[in-house]
Write a protein that binds this DNA or RNA. Structure first.
Length: 210
DNA sequence: ACCCAGGGTCATA
DNA sequence: TATGACCATGGG
């Protein structure tokens, strides 16, 4: 596992993900990027920013139809607009970033999962990047890479694969942030739904690769 | 004209 | 518990 990280780091360098001006903006991005490419999310973030809506109270008070227009480029705009407002209410109820940082990781994770529209990956993205808690994010790129490397054998659950990382690595927030970002970068280039193994920089090989 | 993108919820059996 | 339908825009 550590070998994989070192190879990715050597290939792509530090990613310094996640780009945002505030933890709340990261949380908004985590919801907007659900099953959606980041370039589309950037347009929506820019639209929200131009309306001064990257703020929990402002998001709650934003007229729904106008909010939907801003979210539109990120896709699923009706769902995501509602989810942003629901999450913003939760965010304020928890006492914002400071309040959310007080509680133990597992407690906060349970509360996040109870929010409508927040599933395991979104919750863990919020915990790892916005709240800087040491929890590993499992996304489709992570599952795909591990399967293609045959480091796991499906079927594997979200928590199963997450435990795999948690047991193999020390709980280091910076490491987890960097590792996940590297998996995404590698995934977009070489480990998409259709494998693009030409020029893959990994010394670790996918057994099924040419 | 397809397939895909850093998911999550809900109905059904 | 385990699939499938649905949500929706933008790029290849």
């Amino acid at each position: 596992m550590k070998v994989l990280f070192n190879q990715l780091l050597a290939a792509y360098g530090s990613r310094h993900w996640w780009p945002a001006e505030s933890p709340f903006e990261m949380m908004v991005g985590a919801i907007l990027t659900q099953n959606t490419s980041w370039t589309n999310v950037e347009r929506a973030i820019a639209a929200l920013k131009s309306q001064q809506w990257l703020d929990a109270e402002a998001l709650i008070n934003a007229p729904l139809t106008l909010l939907e227009q801003a979210v539109r480029p990120a896709g699923y705009f009706r769902q995501k607009s509602a989810r942003l407002q629901i999450f913003s209410r939760f965010f304020l109820d928890q006492g914002g970033v400071e309040g959310m940082r007080q509680l133990p990781l597992t407690t906060m994770r349970t509360r996040l999962l109870a929010v409508h529209g927040v599933g395991p990956e979104t919750a863990d993205s919020i915990l790892l990047y916005a709240l800087e808690q040491p929890i590993f994010i499992i996304d489709t790129y992570t599952k795909r890479l591990m399967q293609r490397l045959e480091m796991i054998n499906p079927p594997i659950t979200y928590h199963g694969l997450q435990n795999h990382f948690h047991h193999a690595l020390s709980p280091n927030t910076g490491l987890f942030q960097e590792f996940h970002a590297l998996i995404i970068e590698h995934g977009k280039r070489h480990c998409a739904a259709k494998p693009k193994c030409d020029g893959c920089p990994l010394v670790l090989r996918c057994p099924s690769a040419d």
